[in-house]
Design a protein around this nucleic acid. Structure first.
Lengths: 210, 210
DNA sequence: CCTGACTGGATAGCGATAGTATCTAGTCTA
DNA sequence: TAGACTAGATACTATCGCTATCCAGTCAGG
């Protein structure tokens, strides 16, 4: 398949494909000659994935690169690969890196309380959680201390369900794809449902008042 | 309080404050004279809110404007105000506007199944949901049809809990602030917990394997 | 064999977003 | 009365994610 066909069958412009190849998101086609390369189904697949991640998840190109690199590293276990994916998908949202140790302790406490024993002690996500907790605490959000307890079993159920869905008889790349798509698209799905639920419950409480 | 004090006490530069005033995110201070205006606690509060929404939620400035406008409209009910907030907070993520009616039907079905009877029939969120469903369907994500059923009660519980937290004895602006912060910061909290849970469950299944 | 559409690769440009910086004319404070 | 500060306007900047142009070379059809 030549580059123009790849462009046609994915709806991505030739210029953009070249850009993605430059950025290392997409391998260059197999060279047939100096001025001609061959692209296959793998390219189509990868390109579609990249587009979904950008369109639905607004994942920055740099993070996509990290994702691709994680897939490529054949020495890592599937779990390590997934770990890197999680790290890459934690999109910017520059939480101001928890000032005190207190919130970090709280974060660790939450992870322990949830029973997530397998989370790396040095997972960057823990710091991120600490940062978010800090924001929650000093933004005067009316959060009772048991608030997290309400979330944890629900979140655990959701995550467990999602991991269950992954078909581990496939190759690394396919599994990574499922993981990443699940994280991004189902994450969006989740937030969308939550907004709908908010609207419903807000109506029950506040409709027609003042 | 003069502008430089406002800047100092929020950590936002004078230039940025002026920019926010220009964009209508922040009301100009009460004029004391031609070249001097007075800013009060309301400004500090608003400014801090804006920064959290940008830093944690990456909410674009345009959406913040919509939020501010919604708060300002005193004729709308609290519920309408919250509805507008939901619309504004559905950040970009240009889902390609569901091609067929089929997915839209599916979306409505999900809302009905969840028992969210109070969601407007023409809520833009429904279309967004349809778009996401479409992406899920044709991205080959292994989603069993009962998948949504797994999510719905959990999401409903989370949303109900969050709405419960809102203190309705306060004024509109304070309630809006709680709603928006809840949606953005707790949303981030939620996704962060989910990533941690993913790491845990992924470890249980995939650690040390190849 | 020639013409014209197409290619890989390099480099430059563009439009949107979110600020920064500078300038002006004036004001307040010590 | 000097020096720091201010409102408001305008211009500039950096980053991101492409998009366009150019180059030299290639391939397919007539």
């Amino acid at each position: 398949m030549r580059i123009s066909e790849l462009a046609d069958s994915t709806g991505v412009s030739v210029a953009t494909i070249k850009y993605y190849v430059r950025e290392g998101l997409l391998s260059p086609g197999r060279k047939l000659s100096e001025r001609l390369a061959d692209y296959d189904d793998q390219h189509v697949r990868r390109l579609r994935l990249l587009r979904v991640l950008r369109d639905v998840g607004a994942i920055p190109v740099g993070a996509l690169k990290a994702l691709v690199d994680a897939t490529q590293d054949r020495t890592a276990s599937v779990h390590d690969m997934f770990g890197k994916a999680c790290d890459a998908l934690r999109v910017e949202t520059s939480v101001p890196a928890a000032r005190g140790d207190h919130t970090r302790e709280l974060a660790d406490q939450i992870v322990a309380q949830a029973g997530w024993t397998e989370v790396r002690a040095d997972a960057p996500e823990r710091d991120h959680l600490a940062g978010i907790i800090e924001v929650i605490l000093d933004s005067g959000l009316p959060t009772d201390p048991e608030g997290a307890a309400t979330y944890l079993p629900l979140i655990d159920a959701i995550a467990a369900y999602e991991l269950d869905q992954i078909d581990d008889t496939q190759d690394r790349e396919a599994m990574m794809e499922q993981m990443v798509l699940g994280q991004v698209v189902l994450g969006e799905f989740l937030l969308c449902l939550r907004r709908l639920a908010h609207e419903h419950h807000s109506a029950l409480r506040f409709a027609e008042r003042r």
